[in-house]
Amino acid sequence: MTRPGFHLAIPVDNLERVRAFYSGVLGLDEGRSTDVWVDWNFYGHQLVTHVVPGSERVDAGRNAVDGHEVPVPHFGLLLSVEDFHDLAGRIRGGGIRFVIEPYLRFAGEPGEQWTMFVRDPAGNALEFKAFRDESQVFAK
């Protein structure tokens, strides 16, 4: 049986800048690649960056959530609390500006979680979350 997971392909405009971000800052392992795409091990999931000239993203919009302007569209991952804080440190250490700084949402409530947003060099918005109790991911 195949392990559950996702495969996501996103547009980028420059593989060298993307490599510096996904490998150098986020610490992801590079898989197969050509001169126009790279597979990344995105915490056990497959993320593929495809070169599409002139593909730098612009916001389709933003939604107000907890007093923050959340970029739409975005994608991301659920991490352990430890991995979340390690990644936040890597992002800070890499000089990457947060779209939304790491913060704790729903403290003491169902679904308590850490969350943060960044953009890759092509402008793709990424969200990373960490739930105190992973069984609460879909709690109401």
Rank of each mutant, 00 (worst) to 15 (best):
L28C: 07
L28N: 01
L28S: 00
G31Q: 01
R32F: 14
R32D: 12
S33V: 08
D35Q: 11
D35E: 12
D35S: 11
V36N: 11
V36C: 13
V38I: 12
N41F: 13
F42S: 03
Y43K: 10
G44A: 07
Q46H: 15
L47E: 03
V48P: 01
T49Q: 00
T49N: 04
H50K: 10
V52N: 03
P53E: 00
G54N: 02
G54A: 06
S55L: 01
S55N: 05
R57L: 05
A60K: 14
A60E: 14
R62S: 04
A64V: 12
G67E: 02
E69H: 11
V70C: 10
P71D: 04
V72M: 10
P73A: 02
F75D: 08
G76R: 05
L77F: 07
L77S: 09
L78I: 15
L78F: 14
L79S: 01
L79H: 06
V81I: 01
E82G: 10
E82W: 09
D83N: 02
D83M: 03
D83K: 06
F84L: 08
F84T: 05
H85G: 07
H85L: 10
L87A: 01
A88N: 02
R90A: 13
I91G: 00
R92K: 11
R92N: 13
G94R: 05
I96R: 08
I96D: 09
I96F: 05
I96H: 10
F98H: 07
V99Q: 11
V99A: 12
I100T: 14
E101P: 14
E101A: 11
P102Q: 07
Y103R: 15
Y103P: 13
L104S: 12
R105A: 14
A107W: 12
G108V: 02
G108A: 04
G108R: 04
E109N: 13
G111A: 14
Q113C: 08
W114A: 13
W114M: 14
T115F: 13
M116W: 09
F117N: 13
V118M: 09
V118Q: 08
D120M: 06
D120S: 09
D120Y: 00
P121E: 00
G123K: 03
G123Y: 02
L126N: 05
F128Q: 02
K129F: 03
K129M: 00
K129D: 00
